[in-house]
Every structure is written in structure tokens, then in C-alpha cells.
């Protein structure tokens, strides 16, 4: 395999280049996916049937904590990639671990949030609004969950194989994915929670 040393490690082979572009296109598809979910959500937002409205069930505290956790994890994954570029394996792994812990904490809060919703009578089957809300949040949560395991696997690979063009490429792509989830969360935070609470 041809390795071009003038480029960052994650871009150094032809295959790596393809993968990064391919992943950007995948993110394009993901944007459409979430856009569709948002469209469905906004359409169904006021169709609460016999169930509660957003203002009835949203709680600012856990949401704020989730936001801070995810934003922080987005920052640490950035640091991980920075460390990777400086070829510091230990630091890369360290930031990866922090990112994953933050991600797990986010998921913990989200699970709490979901049980809370079910508890206050906003289950999946309650109304069109709750279905759209829980599906949108759930899809994001599912992405974070999958991302958590993916990140974990990459972490193990960095530990075992070191910073090679492959692991660097995987880490970089993972960071794109993680930032993307963060941006989606910002949209969820602003247009679902804040708008819903007002």
C-alpha cells in the first residue's frame, strides 16, 4: 500500500482518502435522515391527542446536563485527534477514554429522561407527538450508543496496533461522526426542548 508521508496519517493512503470522502457523503445521508425526523416532529408537535404537551413533560436540568456532557465529549474527541496528529498514542487514548465516558454518561441521563417520560404518561404509544419526540431522541440516542461501541473498538485497536494509517483513519472518521451527533444534539436542544418549553 502506498503511504504518502507528506499528508496527515489519516489521509496518507488512497484507501483512507476514499473512506473519508465516503463518510462525508454518509453524513449527508444522515443529515437527510434527521431532517426527515425533524420534519415529522414539527408536523406532529401540536398533535398531542389525549397526552401531554412538550411543555408538560420537558425538564431543563437533565437536558442541560446532557448538552454539557455531549459538548464536552465533542471537545475531547477533537483533542484526541489533535494528539493523534502529534503521534502521541497515550494522549490519544486518554482523550478517547474521556470521550467515551462522557458519551456513556450522556446515555445514562437520556435513559433516565426516557423513564421519566414514560412515568409521567408520555410513552411511545401515547400520541403522535410523543411518538415523534421519542423516535427523534431515540434515533439520536441509538447513534450515540452505536458510536460508543465503535469508539470502544477503535480504542482497543489503537492500543493493540498503535497509530497506523488504518487506526488513524478510523479515529478521524469516528471524530467526524461524533461531532455530527453533537451538532444534531444542538438542533434537538434548541428546536425541541427550548422551543417546546417556551
Amino acid at each position: 500500500m502506498k503511504v504518502d508521508n507528506s499528508l496527515p496519517l489519516e489521509y496518507s493512503t488512497e484507501e483512507n482518502n476514499l473512506k473519508i470522502l465516503g463518510f462525508w457523503i454518509f453524513i449527508g445521508a444522515e443529515i437527510m435522515l434527521f431532517a426527515t425526523l425533524f420534519t415529522a416532529y414539527f408536523t406532529l408537535e401540536n398533535r398531542t391527542g389525549n397526552g401531554p404537551t412538550g411543555a408538560d413533560i420537558f425538564e431543563i436540568a437533565p437536558v442541560l446536563v446532557e448538552t454539557i456532557l455531549l459538548l464536552a465529549s465533542s471537545f475531547t474527541i477533537g483533542l484526541a485527534i489533535h494528539a493523534m496528529r502529534l503521534n502521541k498514542k497515550k494522549a490519544t487514548m486518554g482523550f478517547f477514554i474521556v470521550t467515551l465516558i462522557l458519551g456513556a454518561a450522556f446515555l445514562g441521563f437520556e435513559i433516565y429522561e426516557f423513564t421519566h417520560y414514560v412515568h409521567v404518561g408520555a410513552g411511545l404509544q401515547t400520541s403522535a407527538f410523543t411518538a415523534a419526540l421519542l423516535t427523534t431522541l431515540g434515533t439520536h440516542g441509538l447513534h450515540v450508543t452505536l458510536g460508543f461501541f465503535w469508539g470502544l473498538f477503535i480504542l482497543i485497536q489503537i492500543k493493540k496496533r498503535g497509530l497506523t494509517p488504518e487506526t488513524a483513519n478510523k479515529s478521524f472518521i469516528f471524530s467526524l461522526y461524533w461531532h455530527f451527533l453533537d451538532i444534531i444534539w444542538i438542533f434537538i436542544f434548541s428546536f425541541i426542548y427550548l422551543k417546546g418549553m417556551m
Binding site: T36, L44, R47, G49, Q125, A128, A131, T135
Partner: peptide
């Protein structure tokens, strides 16, 4: 790439209506 994710979401919502009793497209509960 731009159209199929819409289908993915749509079918997921349809599946949920049919299998898990959600109310995206039903005649009641909004």
C-alpha cells in the same frame, strides 16, 4: 443519498405504527 434516508425514516415510522402501536399515521391520538 438524499432521497433514501427519507424512505428509511418513513418505513421505520410505519413499522412502529404496525408493530409497536405508535400513532404516527393512525386515525386517533393525533
Amino acid at each position: 443519498v438524499f432521497a433514501f434516508p427519507v424512505l428509511t425514516v418513513l418505513l421505520a415510522m410505519g413499522t412502529m405504527d404496525r408493530l409497536f402501536g405508535t400513532n404516527f399515521f393512525t386515525t386517533d391520538n393525533g
